[in-house]
Design a protein around this nucleic acid. Structure first.
Lengths: 226, 226
DNA sequence: ACCTGAACACCGTTCAAGT
DNA sequence: ACCTGAACACCGTTCAAGT
């Protein structure tokens, strides 16, 4: 075939197909040869569009993170509402491609979309009155919680067979086998409970800011990005 | 050589060496051939002790999770203190082998040590007066937060070069390049802030339990393991 | 510029053969 | 029982060759 008059591939088509393959068969199934076959080309063709397989994954990760809604940070008044809405949108974006999350959550991980997100969150919190050092921490801890919740199902960790939980070993897990059946409810319920607790707990710290009390966390002195 | 009179390998030695290799060179560097070389044997020898490479990783994950302190759940009175102490021990265990966390955090992930942990947390929370459905959620949301925080550094996502943050694209990241220099402080500060917020926020919900108010989360009805 | 097949140095795993 | 080398079907990536 050699060079066709119209390119067979594009970065977009590669990323979309990679994402679909990951969704259907998992991260491990994504090999350059397999992906190329799915696209109807031979393996090395991909290297005309991406330098490495990792670059393809980075682009896929960036696409996913780019879908997170950040509009709630444009109005700096209601930081609690913004954090709740952002947290939900962030989690929803990740759980659309749950098998990519282990890749996306690790390492530097700040492709352009991640930086835009960090920028919006930090700006929103500072505008709402948080000291910069705390605003940084809020961005970080929300990332921890959301990626952690999207990463793996808690409920799916429990096999759905009651015999698996010998009461001698696990005295309190008598009903644990039921969790597998309610996977999504359990995971979403835990996420919502945690998200509210996080925001409520932060509100307590926020209230102390004005009160002139010492910030037990170390205040603006302890962290960068101020 | 064939069969030596004293076995060259043991499951323990394999797991320990695998963990060391992952710590030094990362998950990707762990191949059966490479690990075998490190152990002074040939690749296939490993299959006398583990069925697959995955089984080796599972065993390594179980070892790491097995080091989490669970003693704080034996006394059911101070659930807040228990959650704080457990969260810190959990995170400390994972960050000793940060490059294993992406593996460990994903999927079923409940090797025996994980089940023991789930059992202790659930039992502790129930004993402290939490309804079972909420106790389940607390175990889950703590796992989200701790694995998320151990998974990847937030601060390391920012390159240490101020020129990387064009103010036109990222108006609030003028100081972000400083984060790389204070990686551990930033990540630990964010973890502590989040952990306290989580526990404080849960305490608010706990206080409402006795007040007879409706549980906005759905109460005992919505989840399993009750 | 963009595709191809051949080639390189790797993988995880199986298996017959050795003691 | 526990190790070995050979073999199978894969990898990611490079590169010269084609149009």
């Amino acid at each position: 075939m050699a060079r066709p008059r119209k390119p067979l591939l594009s970065r977009d088509r590669i990323v979309t197909t990679a994402l679909a393959l990951i969704d259907e068969e998992g991260l491990a199934a994504l090999s350059t040869r397999r992906l190329a076959a799915e696209l109807g080309v031979s393996g090395p063709s991909l290297y005309n569009h991406f330098a490495t397989k990792e670059a393809i994954l980075d682009a896929a990760a960036d696409t996913v993170v780019g879908r997170v809604d950040l509009s709630m940070f444009r109005d700096g008044r209601d930081w609690r509402g913004a954090l709740l809405a952002w947290g939900r949108s962030y989690r929803a974006a990740l759980t659309e491609h749950p098998r990519l999350v282990p890749y996306l959550a690790v390492g530097p991980g700040l492709r352009p979309a991640g930086l835009r997100m960090a920028d919006a969150v930090f700006g929103g919190m500072v505008e709402a009155g948080w000291p910069p050092a705390q605003a940084t921490r809020i961005g970080a801890l929300m990332r921890y919680f959301v990626t952690g919740s999207a990463l793996g199902s808690f409920a799916a960790g429990f096999v759905g067979d009651a015999a698996a939980y010998d009461p001698a070993d696990y005295p309190h897990l008598g009903q644990a086998h039921l969790l597998a059946r309610h996977r999504e409810q359990v995971d979403e319920g835990a996420f919502e409970t945690g998200l509210r607790a996080l925001v409520d707990g932060l509100a307590l710290q926020y209230a102390e800011l004005g009160a002139g009390k010492d910030d037990a966390q170390g205040g603006a002195k302890g962290a960068a990005a101020e």
